[in-house]
Amino acid sequence: MTERVAAGGITTHVARLDATRAPDTGEPPLVVFVHGLLTDSLASYYFTLGPAFAAQGIDTLMYDLRGHGRSDRPASGYRLEDFVGDLVALLTELGETRPAHVVGNSFGGTVAVALAAWHPERVATVTMIESEPPVATWTRHMADGLADARTRLAHAEAFGWIARHHGAHTARLSQGAHRILRTTTLADDVPASRVIDDDLGALTRPLLAIFGGDSGLAEQVPHLRARVADCRTVVLAGQGHSVLIEQPVRTRDLILDWVRDHTPVAEPVP
């Protein structure tokens, strides 16, 4: 089901797919999916991972980040701490108390790590798909990437070029991205976000990190493995940044295994 939920001062578009079979024991695990910036929405999960997770006995919660999809698009307030605050307010409004397995794609993975660092009681495990934790170097990468996107999309003729080279679908997504950049302070706010220390000491929850071997982000693997106590890393050879869209089945299986391995087996009732 889909609904619009007022929480934390904005209205958030939410889609929930509840577990369609009873869990083996106890109550079903909860997986929260967080999408990426600008060209993304909850649809990236709704039509890929969501149904499969529900079929495996997992309650799933997907939502549109502020400024994206069918959620509100306030003019300002796009620092990482705002996105994390939205998610905490949403979980509270929905009466959700189970620590969640939080799965984030790209920027969504950064939101997931930040939630785990600042509200560990909300989080069972974190999954990053092609993401960076919210450390100082991340803010510099975001500043560069967003400045580049703003420059390129500011030229109206870019959409014609994108349509010719990448197809009408990508061109339409780019128009949506331009709308966000033109009407909000997101490009200035994200790089000014609150961060955690480089040593990742703030992250005390288990971490699954999935990377495309060709995207450059996989360079983080040794650092993540050295710093996070319960850490699983997977690098998909020959794959770029679009792991979720181009390898949904592989991604689904990796995360399902991870959630299963981190779901406590309830003691049988005597």
Binding site: A15, L17, S41, L173, G176
Partner: peptide, 25 residues
């Protein structure tokens, strides 16, 4: 329609037809 519009349509289908029509799947 963008993909997010299909999510909204999916909700309408569920409201109208109930659990039998699973558009997401």
């Amino acid at each position: 329609l963008e993909s997010i519009d299909l999510v909204v349509l999916s909700g309408s289908l569920r409201d109208h037809y109930g659990e039998r029509v699973n558009f997401a799947e």
